[in-house]
Design a binder for these strands. Structure first.
Length: 152
DNA sequence: GCCAACGTTGGC
DNA sequence: GCCAACGTTGGC
């Protein structure tokens, strides 16, 4: 039996929002161009729960929940010359970027804003509140996830 | 617009 | 391998 883990994934709502995911139902979390974030995706299991975080907006915060339903998918945007995520250095025989597929679970009635998160958790408990943390995908510890699940 | 905190690139 | 320059993220 594989372990269920919790993660947090950020997206700017202008680029892709919880409402868009709710409409789509399922989406490919593509366009990740940071090795650390990519490596976190590689550690994901099917069934893992993901907190959806709206970044670079007012207010930033957790807006919903999704679930990982597919793993190790080659990110198609790296080969798409029209995509802003096109990577000329990536080869078809040896793709550099991959991603996971997620499905919508729920949208929070109220956003769990970053100021609230800062009140609830210390920097170590929730990496997202750590000043200057630019990683768009982060692991969430189980104890933290339990509290978050009650709040969203 | 500013700035902190990285990551990436490329010369050497 | 080192390091400077530059780019990106994202809160404020």
């Amino acid at each position: 039996m594989t372990e269920i883990n919790y993660w947090l994934m950020k997206s700017e709502p202008d680029a892709y929002s919880i409402d868009t995911l709710k409409t789509d139902g399922v989406t490919l979390w593509d366009g990740i161009r940071n090795y650390q974030a990519r490596n976190f995706m590689r550690k994901m299991n099917k069934g893992d729960k993901v907190f959806f975080y709206h970044s670079n907006c007012k207010p930033p915060g957790i807006v919903g929940l999704m679930e990982v339903i597919d793993l190790n998918i080659v990110d198609p945007t790296q080969f798409d010359k029209d995509s802003k995520y096109f990577d000329p250095k990536s080869q078809h025989e040896n793709p550099r970027w991959d991603c996971v597929k997620v499905k919508y679970i729920s949208k929070s009635n109220k956003i769990l804003s970053l100021p609230q998160l800062k009140i609830l958790f210390s920097d170590n408990e929730l990496l997202v509140v750590k000043k200057g943390n630019r990683l768009s995908i982060l692991p969430v510890r189980n104890e933290v996830a339990k509290i978050l699940l009650e709040k969203i």
